[in-house]
Simulated scan of single mutants.
Amino acid sequence: MGKVYEGIDDRLREFILAQPVYFVATAPSGAGGHVNVSPKGGTGTLAVLGPHWIAYLDYTGSGAETIAHLRDNGRITVMMCAFQGPPKILRLYGRGRAVLPEDAPFAELVAAFPVDPARGLRSVIEVEVERVSDACGYQVPLMDHVGDRDLLVRWADRKSDDELAQYRRTRNAHSIDDLPALSGP
């Protein structure tokens, strides 16, 4: 039922880009701390950059667990589920990093996306994919995608650049386990 692939081929790329929602899982090093799973989505927010390379647009949010965990150990899994059509679950295991606006590759990465990023873009999460595998997805329900939400974009549009920066300094500086996210070393 499940299969491990050499990398992301054209067929898998098509599947990945067709999914309106994907899930990102990270965890801190060691036995303590919280495992984090975040739903992500929005048309054009994930890009397949090569057979072993993906990236997604990371917008300002209520927490910064993924960034903190990637700074801690780099481990990340991205999962897509087919909610329409034939059943399938696809997992991309790898090492990731948050590329911030002040980092040299930021503009080049943003240019790889088919959409202009909305206000509130905090970073681009870049993943070097080490393992690509699928599972049957027989238990995943069929669901209809009604559309993308625009609430996060509208929220960010109501804020000035200074207000967004202040929000990140106060709400995205550390993870819930007090690991640095958008703060110091």
Rank of each mutant, 00 (worst) to 15 (best):
G2N: 12
V4Q: 09
E6Y: 07
G7Q: 12
I16W: 07
A18L: 05
Q19R: 15
P28Q: 09
G32E: 13
H34N: 06
V35Q: 01
K40L: 07
K40D: 03
K40I: 01
T43S: 13
T43L: 07
T43K: 08
L46P: 06
A55P: 03
A55R: 07
Y59Q: 11
G61N: 07
G61D: 08
G63C: 09
A64N: 14
A68R: 06
A68M: 02
D72P: 03
D72S: 01
D72C: 00
N73V: 00
G74W: 02
R75E: 00
R75H: 03
M80Y: 15
A82S: 15
F83S: 09
P86E: 13
R91T: 09
R91Y: 06
Y93H: 15
Y93I: 14
A98S: 15
V99C: 03
L100F: 14
P101G: 13
D103H: 15
A104Y: 07
F106E: 05
A107E: 14
E108P: 01
E108N: 05
V110M: 05
D116C: 04
P117T: 08
P117L: 00
L121D: 13
S123Y: 14
S123L: 09
S123A: 15
V127T: 07
E128F: 04
E130D: 10
V132D: 11
S133C: 07
S133E: 15
C136Y: 07
Q139H: 08
L142V: 09
V146N: 05
G147I: 01
R154M: 10
R158A: 15
S160V: 03
S160M: 06
D161I: 00
D162Y: 02
Q166K: 12
D178K: 12
